[in-house]
Design a protein around this nucleic acid. Sequence first.
DNA 1: ACTCCCGTAACTAGAGAAGTTACGCGATTC
DNA 2: GAATCGCGTAACTTCTCTAGTTACGGGAGT
Lengths: 136, 136
Amino acid sequence: MKRNSRLSLALHTLSHMAHAPDSLRKSADIAAHAGTNPVVVRRVLGNLRQAGLLVSEAGHSGGWRLARPPQEITLADVYLALDERLAAPQIDDTAHGCSVEHALYDRVSKVMAEVEQTLIQKLSETTILEIRDSAD
Amino acid sequence: MKRNSRLSLALHTLSHMAHAPDSLRKSADIAAHAGTNPVVVRRVLGNLRQAGLLVSEAGHSGGWRLARPPQEITLADVYLALDERLAAPQIDDTAHGCSVEHALYDRVSKVMAEVEQTLIQKLSETTILEIRDSAD
DNA sequence: ACTCCCGTAACTAGAGAAGTTACGCGATTC
DNA sequence: GAATCGCGTAACTTCTCTAGTTACGGGAGT
C-alpha cells in the first residue's frame, strides 16, 4: 500500500503490452502479474482508456489492448492520463489575508508549474516501446 | 490536515522572520499565526535548526531567530532542510525480477533526479528576503 | 524558587489510497 | 437463448501517513 503505485502500475502494464500490442489482456492476469487486484487494475487502466491510450472490450474473451502503436505512447502520456500533478500548488486554506503567504504562494506556484513542465517534457522523450526494448 | 503543510509552514515562518531578523519568536506565537500547534512548529523548525537556518534559545524569554541574514537563505535551503524529496524514486518492492520493471525504474528515476535538481535550482534563485519584499 | 519556553516522546484523529466484495451489463460461446 | 466470462462501478474495509494533542523533563532567565 504505497503512494503513487498507480503510475507504477500503469507504466508497467503498458510497457508489457508493448511486447504484443495486438493481444488482449484480462485485468485478472494483469493484476496477478503486478501483485494487485483486478478492480485496482480496471480503475487505473480506466483512466488510460479515457485518455485514449487503451481500449477495453467487454464480454467473453474481452480484455485490454493498446489503442495505438507503442512507439506513439510516451511516459508523459501515461503521467498526464492519471491526472496526478506532482507539482501541486500547495495551496494553504489558512491564507487569512497574510501578504507574505500570498507572495510565497505566487512564487512557489510559479516554480512548481515550471518544474511540472520540465517533468512532462522529460517524460515525453521516452516511449513505452523504448522501455520494452531496453528491458530485453 | 494537509500534505506538505510542513514546507508551507517553514517558508511562511521564515519569510515573516525576515522582517525582523533579530527578534525572538515563540513557537506558540508562530503557531497561532499559522493556525497550528506549538509542537508542530517546534518539530518543523527543529529541522531548520539542524540545517543551520535557525537558532533556538531555551528558558524564559527564549524562542527562535534566523541563524544568518535573510538574504542568505533561499527557498531551496528550506526545501532541503525538510528532507522532503519531491521526486521520490517510486521504488516498487514487488519488483520480482521483472526486466520491464527494472528498465522503467531506471528511466523514471533518472528523470525524477533531473527534475529534482531543476526544482532545487529554481528554488535557490529566491531568498526569503525577496519574498518579504515582494509582500510589502 | 518560580516561570517560561524549548525538546521529545507517546498517543489520538483524520484523510487518502489501495484492497476487497458485490453486482449489473454486454458480448461471446455453446 | 442460456451460460459464461470480463469489464464498469459502487460501497465498504484496511492500512499508512501526517498533523494535532497531551504530557513532561530540562535549561535559562526573573
